[in-house]
């Protein structure tokens, strides 16, 4: 089985719209939304959840004010400034707590509890394009990397059991924790960019990350007609680094219109937009299998 992840560095470059179209074009793929923080692929694929599971990961410190002697040691050892002295006594701000257990361990009055943290939920669902594994992290939670790793692992198990040949993942923006977790085991990264200074800058950073992981990169230039100078510079950068550009996709209002209808581009439009994405998909498969 091969694993593909669609990333971009910069948010809003078009990852999910392209992932949706690829989900339709893929013949035997398990689908995975690895943007567990702000997932959107389900808005196009309308998954029916077959299984919902709580995601619990890490712990959080909670001070029991009845047991607390107010010595303040916890606040002084916390490297994350998570413990404040309020009118009621010392309290942990859950949003700042890293779950490191240092205060729990060092508290002389043994007054700090350390329950497991419920960080979100993950799902196995059916969609009109096949099985989908996805999740929703609760707002402000940590451990997105661990949840990404868990989703990939579940998707691999299902793929093995049901005989899928491909795992198609929509990734998160940025280059941090969830993106790094999504790179593990990935054969090919499809990097979506746009011909703007931000698009180019962020492509360069995320492509470098892929190089560190020795993951093959192909590039899609979205809204390619917005600025031909920028597009040419991206083209040059890709050429110099051996990243094939598999699609030049012009700005097209069909993308938003399809989204509003809850459809993927290739369902909504049978014109040039769909043809370009079909060609890109074939192009990408050729590169994947040429490995």
């Amino acid at each position: 089985m091969h694993e593909i992840v669609i990333i971009s560095g910069k948010g809003g470059a078009g990852k999910t719209s392209i992932a949706g179209a690829f989900a339709q074009l893929a013949e035997n793929a398990i689908l995975c939304d690895l943007d567990v923080d702000a997932p959107d692929l389900h808005l196009l694929l309308a998954p029916k959840n077959l299984l919902q599971t709580e995601f619990r990961s890490g712990n959080e410190a909670i001070i029991d004010l009845n047991r607390c002697d107010r010595c303040g040691l916890c606040a002084s050892v916390c490297k994350f400034d998570a413990i404040e002295l309020t009118q009621r006594g010392f309290q942990v701000a859950p949003i700042r707590c890293e779950g490191c257990k240092v205060c729990v361990e060092l508290c002389p009055a043994d007054a700090i509890d350390f329950p497991e943290r419920h960080c979100g939920s993950w799902y196995i669902s059916t969609t009109r394009f096949g099985t989908m594994v996805h999740a929703q992290l609760f707002p402000g939670q940590e451990n997105s990397g661990r949840l990404v790793t868990l989703l990939k692992q579940k998707a691999r198990e299902i793929a093995e059991h049901d005989g899928y040949e491909l795992m198609l993942c929509d990734g998160a923006p940025g280059i941090g924790c969830p993106v790094i977790s999504s790179m593990a085991g990935t054969d090919l990264a499809v990097v979506v960019t746009e011909p703007t200074p931000s698009g180019r800058h962020d492509l360069e950073r995320v492509a470098k990350l892929c190089d560190q992981f020795k993951t093959k990169v192909v590039v899609i230039i979205n809204k390619c007609d917005l600025n031909s100078d920028q597009a040419a510079q991206i083209e040059e950068f890709c050429k110099a680094n051996g990243y094939p550009v598999i699609c030049h996709f012009p700005h097209d209002h069909a993308v938003t219109k399809a989204m509003v209808k809850g459809q993927v581009i290739t369902e909504y439009d049978s014109g040039p937009a769909s043809q370009l994405l079909e060609a890109a998909w074939k192009n990408m498969l050729n590169i994947l299998h040429a490995n």
Binding site: G11, D37, G140, E142, S144, G174
Partner: peptide
């Protein structure tokens, strides 16, 4: 601020 609603985003607005 960074996009999203998880720890980096909260850390930027808090």
């Amino acid at each position: 601020a960074p996009p999203g609603v998880s720890c980096p985003a909260i850390s930027a607005v808090i």
